[in-house]
Amino acid sequence: MQKVFQKSALLTDTPFHYCPGCTHGISHRITAEALEELGGKQGIIGVAPVGCAVFAYNYFNCDIQQAAHGRAPAVASGIKRVCPDKIVFAYQGDGDLASIGMAETVHAAARGENITIIFINNAIYGMTGGQMAPTTLIGQKSTTSQGGRTAALQGNPIRICEMLATLDGASYIARVSLHDLKSVVAAKKAVKKAFDYQVAGKGFSLVEILSTCPTNWGMTPENSMEYVKNEMTKVYPLGVFKEV
């Protein structure tokens, strides 16, 4: 018998600290596998965010810098200037990337920084206990939108891919999901493509991964997947928004 699936060498042996059923783990796996498939000739430098993935430096088996909240694209830009031949990626959540770090995100894309961002959109602040995120859906309950988010009271969710796709510096912008096997396979292909674009020097690439937060959504992992499929993809349609 041959091994048809085993853990990527680009993941350490440290067990993930994520809650049961949280799709951060799947995102980590596909990111590590996509990086591994690049062949390992180039060095890799990651940037970890603030949020649930703050400990990402414990999991990815490469050089990593842990950034201040929202600043990962700026940190990655600084790294890339010093190490232009290395693969530089940032792994960020929705609060980190789309709220406090929006300026860093938009301007890294506008500059066409040759970096890759893996953007985890689970529509909530997980680490701090379930507060409203910039991507929280209308009607979705959080600890700071307890009756459900309303446009009148809390404003509207932000669609990052659609926004970044308008920028000339962006080379590959895609939104994927992890709600079933087929989407997981597609998500990995998109992440691999984003890294390929960086290797080819095409500029800024970002893959938004629709993800779950069973703990703070108050759902089972399986029902969370259904929520992504039935509710999130309505607001955040899957697809490739920019490809040059």
Binding site: F5, Q6, K7, Y18, C22, T23, G25, R29, L181, V184
Partner: peptide, 14 residues
């Protein structure tokens, strides 16, 4: 199962 596992718990052989 392995592709869906968030904790990379599963190894598969065939």
């Amino acid at each position: 199962c392995a592709l869906m596992c968030p904790d990379v718990v599963i190894e598969v052989s065939r």
